Amino acid sequence: MSAIILACPRCASRNRMPIDRLTGDGKCGKCGAAMFNGRPVELTAANFDRHAGADLPLVVDFWAPWCGPCRTMAAVFEAAAAGVEPAARFAKVNTEAEQQLAARFQIRSIPTLAIFHKGREVTRQSGAMPAGMLAQWLEAHLPVPG
């Protein structure tokens, strides 16, 4: 039985979880939080690398509160998180609050979605997308966990 390493959505501690238990109700070994809750995780400079470096693919929405297309995209992104987890972790980075992350990844327009897997950026897409287009983009680019 193979296992993957993933970060807790609450405390960002690394946890080892058997792949066949991803659809279960796994809890963090440190804080006891559910490993999956169907909602995007808020990322900061302090916890970004723990999530991006995990074996579980990470889909990140780089956004800002003043951005109209970002607010439109938020509902689509949250619905995708509920439908795709536990095949991937979904997260949001507020580029206004986390300017160093936005600079690190050279985010020039928002919203920008990026997929990370095992510490590396796989792909990115700028601009708001309707649900169907987001689903197609995820299907085409989302790596298999592990």
Rank of each mutant, 00 (worst) to 15 (best):
G68I: 09
K27D: 10
V41A: 12
F62M: 11
G83L: 05
L56R: 00
R108S: 11
E121A: 12
A12Q: 03
D49P: 04
I107A: 06
L43A: 10
R120Y: 00
F116D: 13
C11E: 10
D55K: 02
A88E: 10
P9E: 07
G119K: 02
G68L: 07
D20W: 03
S109H: 03
R39K: 15
F77C: 02
E121C: 06
I19Y: 08
N94L: 10
G32N: 13
M129Q: 13
R89S: 15
A46D: 14
A80L: 02
A34W: 09
T123Y: 01
T72A: 11
M129K: 07
A88F: 06
L101A: 08
A45D: 10
A131C: 01
P40C: 12
A131V: 03
N94Q: 13
A64F: 04
R39C: 10
G38W: 08
V76C: 01
C31I: 06
L43Q: 08
V76N: 01
E85H: 00
L113F: 01
D25E: 15
P130T: 01
C70G: 09
N37Q: 14
D25P: 07
D61Q: 15
R10I: 06
T23F: 12
R104P: 03
G53H: 07
A12P: 03
R21G: 09
G119M: 02
E42H: 09
F48Q: 12
R71F: 07
T72V: 11
A82N: 04
C31N: 08
C28E: 10
M17N: 05
G53T: 07
R10T: 14
T44P: 09
A52W: 05
I115L: 07
T123N: 05
M129E: 06
V84M: 03
G127W: 03
P65W: 05
A54W: 07
A128F: 04
G127L: 03
F36L: 02
G24F: 04
V59P: 00
L101N: 10
D49G: 04
A33S: 15
I110Q: 00
D20R: 02
P69L: 12
A88K: 02
M129W: 04
A46R: 13
A88D: 09
S13G: 08
L22V: 10
M35H: 03
P111R: 08
P9Q: 11
F77M: 06
N47V: 06
T123K: 01
D55I: 03
G53P: 06
D25S: 15
P130W: 00
A80Q: 02
R71L: 15
F105M: 08
G68N: 08
A103C: 01
A103L: 09
T112G: 01
V60Q: 12
R89N: 06
F116W: 12
S13V: 05
E96A: 14
P69E: 12
A97T: 14
P40L: 11
G38S: 13
V93L: 12
G32I: 10
E78M: 05
N15E: 07
I115Q: 04
V122T: 14
K30R: 12
W63C: 07
G119T: 04
N94V: 11
V122H: 10
G119F: 02
A82F: 00
V59C: 02
H117Y: 09
L58H: 00
A74M: 07
F48D: 11
